[in-house]
């Protein structure tokens, strides 16, 4: 790119969104995308070993993290997930 086609610089910077106050009992909702062959197997093993992990983490198994798509990530955020964990 020539760098000439960018939008003209703004005259004033956009207002910065004030961070909302976080309630003390708030827990982020985390979605984990895990590869079937490694990370998901590890999570499975953790289950077999009766290890517990935080209930605000939900796991989705992918055949490979290469299957992860932009749209999965964006759809998760659209539906209110606070963070993603991709493991593979």
């Amino acid at each position: 790119m020539t760098g000439q086609a960018h939008a003209a610089p703004r005259e004033e910077a956009p207002p910065i969104e004030a961070p909302r106050e976080i309630p003390p009992d708030w827990e982020p909702s985390i979605l984990a995308f895990a590869c079937h062959y490694c990370a998901f197997a590890a999570a499975d093993l953790a289950g077999v070993m009766r290890l517990s992990y935080a209930p605000n983490v939900k796991i989705i198994r992918l055949p490979c993290t290469g299957k992860l798509d932009h749209s999965y990530v964006l759809r998760a955020f659209e539906r209110g997930v606070d963070g993603l964990f991709v493991a593979g």
Partner: peptide, 16 residues
């Protein structure tokens, strides 16, 4: 079409 899908998602979040 892929970029349209991504853009639609970003605009939905913007609308929210």
């Amino acid at each position: 079409n892929k970029e349209a899908e991504i853009l639609a998602s970003l605009l939905r979040m913007k609308a929210t």
